[in-house]
Design a protein around this nucleic acid. Structure first.
Length: 120
RNA sequence: CAAGUAAACUGGGUGACCGCCCUGUAUUUGAUACAGGGAGGAAAGUCCGAGCUCCACCGAGCGAGGUGCUGGGUAACACCCAGGAGGGGUAACCCUACGGAAAGUGCCACAGAAACAUACCGCUCCUCGCGGAGUAAGGGUGAAAUGGUGAGGUAAGAGCUCACCAGCAAUCAGGUAACUGGUUGGCUGGGCAAACCCCACUUGGAGCAAGACCAAAUAGAAGGGUGUUUGAGGUGCUCGGCCGAUACCCUCGGGUUGGUCGCUUGACCUUGAUGGUAACAUCAGGGCUAGAUGGAUGGUCACCGCCCUGUUUCAGGGCACAGAACUCGGCUUAUAGGUUUACUUGCCCC
RNA sequence: GGCCCCGUGGUGUAGCGGUUUAACAUGCCACCCUGUCACGGUGGAGAUCAGGGGUUCGAAUCCCCUCGGGGUCG
């Protein structure tokens, strides 16, 4: 279950970085690449420039919560790169940023989070 | 009441909803349901010390480190406890790499006459003077200048003599010891060992990405060097024992990027008793307290608590340092606020 | 997670086995040379020696702690 949505290997990240298309907001940079599978996978990149281990871990937990609650179209590998200003953001600001980036890239399936949360 | 010293503890709480990881049970093997558990005092820095694993193993010497007042504690330590000495503070109390400079070598810039063996200006005597002799009181240089103060003494002076203090040696007493106190003696002759070094004690090397197993995959008769009782290689070097032969080392090329164990019962936590000034030890009872693998321990909302700002109906903002990765014992560093205990000094009242 | 290395002008490096001058190259600025630029020549500025503490009469150098940067592993 877990392996279905997680990007694990460094090679996968490098492929998305090199060939993927980019969407930018003030808090997050998103890179997307088609993987030709019937599911979508995602991962997070939080560098040491962002903050100490506590702050980085908190951001990864928040993003995992947010992205897990969105209903994604299948067939894409997505990498979220956290920018330094995101340390001061709260949950709602990050949620807004992720939602707008996903809609820009047209990766959201259907309409409404009610169905998604019901399935999960 | 104010200022301070030392030690110990804590480091937001409650509820609702939605999630993550592990263990157990049941259905049964796809997963679901229920129950239980789920970050810290520093988890950090990786500065020391150990356990554990591999280097096949054992011994001796050399080399290279580490520690450094004394006694004790400990698995061990550079840690802790107690004591001594020196220094700081009115005091409570705090700090200290605190062995050896008559084993040897080296260094001590500039200034100064002189920096480890000496006399520049001086002072006194002989002497017209030049010069010679005695001396180290005073001046000056320096971080440091040949014990300090006072009295006697003298040509002038000087431990030359005496008293006290500091220091050295011997001896006596106390103490396990570091050391302290007394007596006597001769009266003394610099610093640096976090410079080399000497002395005492001590250290083999690497690290859980150690290491063991299962499964999968591919291409080694590839090239070079060394060697088979004339002995390669065997984790600093040398020697000895021992092991030892399609063996070892280097280069080039190829495959895999999965899983299981190690992985949490341990020098463990806690309560009581006993011994000890204490660190700590022993005995008896009770307890099980995180184990991830792109890496769990979270999110939203409401109320309460604390702090700040406006102002006192209330409103807004904030709530330290920081996240386990084989496991322990320490050290060091970061840390908003709060609580408790003991003690010191000052002021006021009785 | 473990184990190592480094930190000196803007940049890249030296630094005497402690005491006196922090040196060199390049870059920067000014002047000379040239009709102009470059090259060349002359002069000058520019360093909390990563930060703090200790040893010492004296520390870039010796010792300890902290900070920052980099490398490596089956």
């Amino acid at each position: 279950m877990k392996a279905s949505w997680a990007l694990t290997k460094r090679v996968q990240y490098a492929l998305v970085y090199r060939k993927g298309s980019t969407f930018i907001s003030g808090l997050i940079v998103m890179k997307v690449l088609s993987n030709r599978l019937d599911l979508s996978r995602y991962g997070f990149s939080v560098t040491k420039k962002v903050g100490n281990a506590v702050q980085r871990n908190r951001l990864k937990r928040l993003l995992r919560q947010i992205v897990g609650s969105q209903l994604l179209k299948p067939g894409w590998d997505i990498v979220f790169i956290v920018r330094r200003r995101a340390v001061d953001a709260n949950y709602h600001q990050l949620e807004e940023a992720v939602a707008s980036l996903l809609s820009q890239a047209r990766l959201v399936q259907g309409n409404g989070k009610a169905t998604s949360s019901k399935i999960n």
